[in-house]
Amino acid sequence: GVQDLIIELAVMVLSAAIGLSTLWSMAGSNGQDPKAIGYKFKPAGENVLWGLGGFIASLPLVAAMSLLSNWAFRRIHTPEQPIIPMVSSGNAAVVALAFIVACVAAPIIEETFFRGTLYNAFRGKTGTWPSVLATSALFAAVHPLPGNFLPIFTLACILAILRERTGSLLPGMVCHSVFNTSSLIIALL
């Protein structure tokens, strides 16, 4: 439990460090601002509100997509998100680490790369909607399939729309974190 989560956290942080150093060195040597991926957090209060609004807006859509997906894939087994059984084991250290991984590290790192670098790369080549759909499909595809595809794709579309609408990654980080936190709390109960 604890050891698995420490490894998972180390992998996330290390790969993020490699990606960010690539971004900073390449952008820097081309005279471009790496923070333009959406590292613009002010006005913080407004951005946090956008994130909370996005979370509330996502709830009925993600719930509807979960129901549809459960029905569509009722005959096909979808593996469980590996962090869920760890959390239900109840060990305090495991629960604390799981919250750090799912509610702090994952939102910051995944928003940076999926809605920051990847979304903006597509956005520079195609229009808004192809970028929203393509990056959300990839984001959903890296989660346990097939049952989670539709709900996570829907959440990712909302995260990408928040990035597009506000120009900041903070609303997506807040929405992503609140979503993961509520999922973990439900798993704990």
Binding site: A10, I18, G19, L20, T22, T117, A121, G124
Partner: peptide, 24 residues
């Protein structure tokens, strides 16, 4: 920022994540 730089940054993150997940 140019799409090429952004895509390379994403790929270096994504590929490292996959390699590290498999190796560690």
């Amino acid at each position: 920022i140019s799409p090429t730089i952004l895509l390379r940054a994403f790929l270096s993150y994504f590929v490292s994540f996959i390699i590290l997940s498999v190796v560690i």
